[in-house]
Structure formats: C-alpha cells, structure tokens
Design a protein around this nucleic acid. Structure first.
Lengths: 210, 210
DNA sequence: TATAAAATACCCATTTTCGGGTATTTTTTT
DNA sequence: AAAAAAATACCCGAAAATGGGTATTTTATA
C-alpha cells in the first residue's frame, strides 16, 4: 500500500484525484492540503510515501515545499502536478528534487501511473512534456545554466506581487540600488528588454502569482 | 436525464468530473472539449441541457462561448467553472448569460449541485462567492456599471502585450497624452493604484480580450 | 586556498508611468 | 435637439524602471 498526501489549492482537483484513487487497493490518500505550508506540516507529521504537489499554491509554493521535504525526508517521493509546462518551472522543480512531473492537461490517470512509478524508485514524466521540455530543460541546465540566483528569484517573486524596488529593498533590508541591480541582471540573463518585461515575465512564468 | 457537455482545457479536471458524475442516473456527460471553439461546435451540434465551461480556454474564451451559445440556443443553461473569483470575470460571465458560477477551490460536488439547480431553472452560485462577490458585482453593475469602453479595452490589450504608451499612441494614431489619459481612467475605474498594477491587471485578465 | 560567482551598493542619464488637473471635440443615447 | 458618455489632448510634478557603468564584500566551489 502506497500512502500519499496531496497538496493542491483547487479543492475540485483534489476531489477528482480522490475519486480516481479511492478504490485503488495499492494507493491510500492519507491527507490533503490546500496550501504549501499546510502540506509541509502534514507531510512532516504523517510521512507519506509519495507527495503530489501543485507548483502554484498559496502561502508557500510547491518548489519551496519540495525543497523542504527533500531536506528533512529525502526518501519521500514527490510528484509535481502543474498546469505550467514552462521550462523553468519544470527545471526548478527538478532541481528541488521531484521524481515526477505531470500536467493538468493530461488525463487524470497519469497521476496513478506517476505515483506507482516514483514509489518504485523510477522517475515519471508526463508524455506531454518529455519530448518538448524534458530534453530541453536538461540540455539547458547543462549548457547555459542561466537560472537565476536565489536572491534574484526572491526578488522576482516580489516583483510578481507588484512590489516596487524600494518596497523590495525594505522587505529584504538592502539598498534600493541593489534591488535595481538585480533587476538589471535578471533582464540581461533572461534576454528581456523594456519597461514591463520583467513584471510580465514574473507574472507569467513564476510559480508565485497572486 | 440531464445531458451535459464540459469545456475545460485541463483534461485532468474533466476526468475528475467524469468520475464524479459517471454513475449519476440523472446526469449524462455526452461530450467534452478542451478549447472554446470545439466546445461551441459540440454544443451547437449536440444541444445538451447544460454546459459547464471554464473561463480561460484556448482558441476562444468561456465568455465568448457563452455569448455565442446564448444567442443561438437561449434555453441551454450554462455554468461557469473557474479559478477566478475576480469581480469582473464573474460580472462578465453573468452578463454573457450564465446561470451558475462555481470555483475550482470548492468541492467538486458543487458541480453536481449546480447542474441540477440550473437545469431546474434556478441560478446557482458557489458558496465561496455569493457573499463576497455576488452582491458586490451586482451592486457594482447597478451603481457604477464601470466596464471599460472600447478604446480602453483596446489599450488594455496592448498594455498586456507590453507596449508602452508611446508605442500604443503610434499604433492607434493618437497622442501619447491620450493613451496616458486612458490609462489613468482605467486605473480609476478598476480601483487600482501603483506602477505595475495596470499591466498586471491586463496580463492576468487578458483572456477577456484576445 | 585560490578563484569564481553572487550579493551588495553606488554613479550617471533617460524613459515611462502615475496622480492630480483642465478642456475640446466626437459619438452615442435619450 | 439636448444631454451624457467617450475619446481626444494638454499641463504639472513625482516616483519608478531601465540602460549603462564601476566597485566592494560575501559566499560557494573547484
């Protein structure tokens, strides 16, 4: 029996998964959570075999949750369940330590397959991504390694929340000029240009939304 | 027996609904679609009693689909199923002619309730919204009816594409000051404030326009 | 430990947006 | 035809973001 915990802010989707898996003799959903912090607490307490987590979640995003779980319970297998098929979300989740990645565009049945696969020690990537992104992301990781640094990601997160540079500076206890420097570096790294580009990028690609 | 068609770009969510309703003797899912155009075609051809539609969908958004269905088959009941609990999405869907509105944050069981209610000629609004938004949206519709004008929507669309005011002015053959005026008017109408707010609004709600 | 990478902070100048206005012309609606 | 709404265009000033630098300190990593 594989025990699993699900983190997903849309209750309707959790309900769908429960309906799918409730009569499965090999899988038992022992708990669910609607935000990242709650998910982390539950996982640390109940120690399931497999965690299914959305990337975009309130309070704490799936990437942070994955990192935290992997740090404290490295044997727990994690499957990302996301509507984002963007390279960087996939890449970041992979770096955080997920063993599987499935898309909401795909049949729900993929969830069952993924759970079984990762529990068996394999990796499982949705057929919808393995061609387009899988190679892509790994190739990118090896060649360009142009991912943003920790501070940069933090700032990008705040940008997505519509914070201005001076607000971000206050939050992070740094100078405004530092934040502005990070902005410029990110714009350069990401190949953007123009006023709203970075905000647009932050909103569209990042795991943190409203 | 109530016949329904579901439009939703995330197959996993459709699968969840099918699992929920497949053994319901009163409801029969006769078809599903993953984009707005496909949904409209199916509905016009198969003429279900109730349509469940997402708002944000590829090719054609749920608002346009709802308008088109209501125009040609006014007796078809439509339930919006959305992750957006924003006032304007709700208001626009209501104006387009939906009889129900449910949120993905809510239990999937809400879908069944909504289908039965709207088929019986009632309106059904998710308990998650009726307090916060329902009154709000209707009150707003009556008092301010602050929907954006045609020019404003056009400009907002360009803003979502990351055009600056001067670029927009060029595209529209107007003065930069006019575009800026429209921006300010929109910010006022929408109750926004701060630098990136309008861009953020434009990006997050661009499904209304393209 | 030596080196690279990241984070920090500042300089300059320019463009853009925003928050107040006012005012005229067109278009739409009553 | 009169009134209302929308679109047009300008004023001012302030705040913010961008593009281009340089430079120091910390923190990883080879």
């Amino acid at each position: 029996m594989i025990t699993i915990v699900i983190g997903e802010d849309h209750q309707a989707i959790i309900d769908g998964m429960v309906l799918l898996l409730q009569y499965d003799k090999n899988i038992s959903i022992i708990d669910t959570a609607n935000d990242g912090k709650a998910l982390l607490d539950i996982v640390l307490q109940k120690r399931p075999d497999v965690v299914i987590t959305d990337i975009r979640m309130p309070v704490m995003d799936g990437i942070a949750v994955t990192r935290a779980i992997k740090e404290q319970l490295p044997n727990t297998k994690i499957v990302a369940f996301s509507m984002f098929d963007q390279d960087d979300a996939f890449l970041q989740m992979h770096e955080a330590g997920v063993s599987g990645y499935i898309l909401k565009n795909s049949p729900l049945e993929e969830v069952r397959k993924a759970v079984i696969a990762v529990h068996a020690g394999k990796e499982y990537y949705d057929s919808g991504i393995d061609e387009r992104l899988y190679d892509n992301a790994f190739a990118k990781a090896k060649t360009t390694k142009s991912v943003l640094s920790k501070s940069e990601r933090e700032i990008l997160n705040l940008i997505a929340q519509n914070k201005t540079s001076s607000e971000i500076a206050e939050i992070r206890f740094t100078a405004v000029s530092t934040v502005e420097k990070h902005r410029k570096n990110m714009i350069r790294k990401l190949g953007l240009s123009g006023k709203g580009e970075l905000l647009k990028y932050a909103i569209q690609r990042k795991y943190e939304f409203n």
